[in-house]
Simulated assay, not measured.
Amino acid sequence: MFKEFKEFIARGNVMDLAVGVIIGGAFTAIVNALVNYLINPLIGIFIGSIDFSDFVFKVGDATFKVGSFLNAVINFLIIAFVVFLLMKGINKLMPKKEEVAEEEPVDPQIEVLEEIRDLLKKQN
């Protein structure tokens, strides 16, 4: 059982996934810092508040943290945009593999019929 687990972990797909998760976590920290320390203060210049997490909406005893949600939306949009740019760049660098269409074997009777058809077209 340990041997099977070791083979499973050693496969490329699992290792690639692990690297992706680690880099994704580090990238999320960078984007959070970008949003919290650069973008929010820039937007705060126009709105008058730097920290959006203070924006709350209260209805009775319920408190809706609109500012925290806004921070999360900004984080998501930045991450999605950067991933879009990365994929666009990778697609430009990596040439597309042209799919070679495999020809299906043609029935000899169909070949003969097509030749007859072509000859009849030439006669008319």
Rank of each mutant, 00 (worst) to 15 (best):
K6Y: 12
N32Q: 15
V66M: 11
F52T: 01
K96I: 09
I74C: 00
K58F: 02
Q109M: 06
E98F: 06
I45H: 05
L85T: 01
P41G: 00
F69Q: 08
T28Q: 13
A80E: 05
I47Y: 10
G12V: 08
A80L: 06
F5P: 02
L42M: 05
F64I: 14
N124L: 12
K58D: 07
F81E: 13
I43M: 02
E4D: 08
N124W: 09
P108Y: 04
E7C: 11
V21S: 09
A29I: 09
F81C: 05
F52A: 05
K65C: 00
I78R: 02
V59P: 02
G25E: 10
T63S: 13
L70Q: 09
V14P: 03
R11C: 13
N13A: 15
L70C: 07
I47K: 07
A18H: 14
E115A: 14
F55H: 04
N32T: 12
F57D: 01
V59M: 09
S68W: 08
S68Q: 06
A26Q: 12
K88C: 00
R11F: 10
K58P: 00
A26H: 11
F57C: 02
N13S: 15
D118S: 07
K121F: 03
L86M: 15
P108N: 09
Q123S: 13
I45N: 01
V56A: 04
D61L: 12
N32K: 14
E115M: 15
L113S: 07
L34V: 10
V56N: 03
D107I: 05
L119I: 12
F46C: 11
V82Q: 02
I45W: 04
R117F: 02
L42A: 07
I50P: 01
F57G: 00
G24S: 03
